[in-house]
């Protein structure tokens, strides 16, 4: 049946923090709850204009990646048979990035409320730090140890079961 509602949008324009514009079709944009909410709100108001959604926290290069992810997942949205293929793609997708990109991507996924991408990033980071020592984690992520040796020993003692 042809859509009778005149207020149905097919595309939105998303603006990155460095003022680049991305034209995104609705199905792809809907992978992000933030964008979906904006679209739904506009449709409710019955507007016919193309809407512009500014994302003040996401740079163009990260937004490109998020949209690449959304596009792939929108393609697979109606098809659960290719789950395995999609998982493989997800893994290859994240493998390319260094921690800095991964961090920004995680934050963008959180900000844009793309739950599956957020979980994917968190899982990926978790897997990559799983076998590291505390000292290695501090080094890799440049975290300053602000405990005194005594405090650190106390905490280890308190959670002794975890350090065996």
């Amino acid at each position: 049946m042809a859509s009778s509602s005149s207020s149905s949008l097919s595309r939105v324009v998303v603006k990155s923090s460095d003022n680049n514009l991305f034209v995104v079709n609705k199905k792809v944009a809907s992978q992000s709850q933030l964008l979906k909410q904006c679209i739904d709100n506009m449709e409710e108001k019955g507007t016919n204009d193309v809407i512009l959604i500014p994302l003040s926290n996401v740079t163009s290069n990260i937004l490109t990646l998020v949209l690449e992810y959304c596009e792939k997942h929108a393609d697979f949205a109606d098809d659960d048979n290719n789950n395995q293929e999609l998982k493989q793609w997800d893994h290859e997708f994240l493998k390319k990035f260094d921690y800095a990109t991964l961090n920004s991507l995680t934050m963008a996924a959180d900000y844009m409320v793309t739950k599956s991408l957020l979980n994917l990033c968190c899982q990926f980071i978790a897997d990559s730090i799983k076998d590291l020592t505390v000292q290695q984690i501090r080094q890799i992520f440049d975290i300053k140890n602000d405990f005194t040796p005594q405090e650190e020993a106390d905490i280890k003692n308190e959670n002794a079961w975890a350090f065996r």
Binding site: D98, A100, N103, C122, F141
Partner: peptide, 20 residues
């Protein structure tokens, strides 16, 4: 050097939830 500390508590907790 990537600073994982730039992530919010909620995200860090999400990461920790994926670990044993």
């Amino acid at each position: 050097m990537a600073n994982i500390d730039s992530l919010s508590d909620a995200i860090l907790i999400c990461i920790l939830s994926f670990l044993p």
